[in-house]
């Protein structure tokens, strides 16, 4: 046996019991105390597992309903969305499956329609505490803080900087989710939306609905950011595979206009 010091991974999420004949194979696996293969598989919903992994407790039926409804609403941003466009750009050239999903994650991570926008909106929800009505004012004055790896926020998070009125599908998602129990932020957004949009100066976007839903589910901004990335991947996967089938001749290769060069971009 080696006398090297043992390096260990610490976790509050997962416990495995080794097989008697092999310490690298598990005879049982527990997620926050629940026997995953002995009891959860076949009984738990996918969203139960998602919620349990991140929050450490099983969701209430209403929480599971909300997460599942939101997951359906977020599953496919559609081929106009830049994260899906990125995945399709992977698929059409025959890039690996992982590369297509990594492309969707990278592009869908940002402050325009992306997971960082959800994170930003959720930090404002977190700062508001129980004072739900303070959210709109704080969002309108949102300050992303000191320079870091993310570009500066160019619009109030959770709202559509190019919107004229609230997109019907955004309203439909908000209305449907707000009908589910235990959704104080969603219910307030649904009830007060016109006034909130007037205060912010822009119509609500999917990111705003998702941020309110994640906050109502008790997720932290970091957890909401992760879930937003995760829950939009199914559409990226499907569209990447579809474009692989169509082939590059049916995928846009836009005309180019070369404008005056040599100017130095100040970024």
């Amino acid at each position: 046996m080696s006398d090297r010091p043992t390096e260990r991974i610490h976790t509050r999420i997962w416990r495995e019991e080794p097989e008697a004949d092999n310490p690298f194979a598990a005879r049982a696996a527990y997620c926050h105390g629940y026997d995953v293969y002995g009891e959860m598989v076949g009984r738990a919903r996918w969203v139960d597992m998602l919620y349990l992994l991140l929050r450490g407790e099983a969701p209430t039926p209403a929480q599971a309903d909300l997460l599942e409804a939101l997951a359906v609403g977020l599953a496919n941003p559609g081929p106009r969305d830049q994260s899906v466009h990125a995945a399709m750009s992977g698929g059409v050239g025959g890039s690996t499956a992982a590369a297509s999903l990594m492309a969707a994650l990278a592009v869908g991570a940002g402050r325009y329609c992306g997971a960082r926008e959800v994170f930003d909106a959720m930090t404002v929800w977190a700062a508001c505490g129980d004072d739900v009505a303070a959210w709109a004012g704080r969002i309108a004055r949102f300050d992303a803080g000191p320079v870091d790896i993310w570009p500066d926020a160019e619009h109030p998070p959770g709202f559509d900087p190019y919107g004229v009125s609230t997109a019907t599908i955004v309203r439909q998602l908000l209305t449907r989710l707000a009908r589910i129990a235990q959704t104080p932020r969603l219910a307030w957004l649904a009830a007060q939306r016109p006034g909130i949009e007037a205060e912010v100066g822009l119509p609500l976007a999917f990111t705003g609905v998702a941020a309110a839903a994640f906050a109502d589910l008790g997720f932290s901004p970091g957890e909401g950011e992760m879930l937003f990335l995760l829950l939009r991947l199914p559409g990226a996967a499907a569209h990447a595979l579809e474009q692989q089938g169509y082939g590059f001749k049916r995928f846009p290769f836009y005309p180019v206009e070369l404008v005056e060069s040599g100017a130095r971009e100040e970024t």
Partner: peptide
């Protein structure tokens, strides 16, 4: 990583 090098600190 063998099972016993995971330090479980949860419920």
């Amino acid at each position: 990583t063998p099972c016993d090098e995971i330090v479980y600190e949860g419920l």
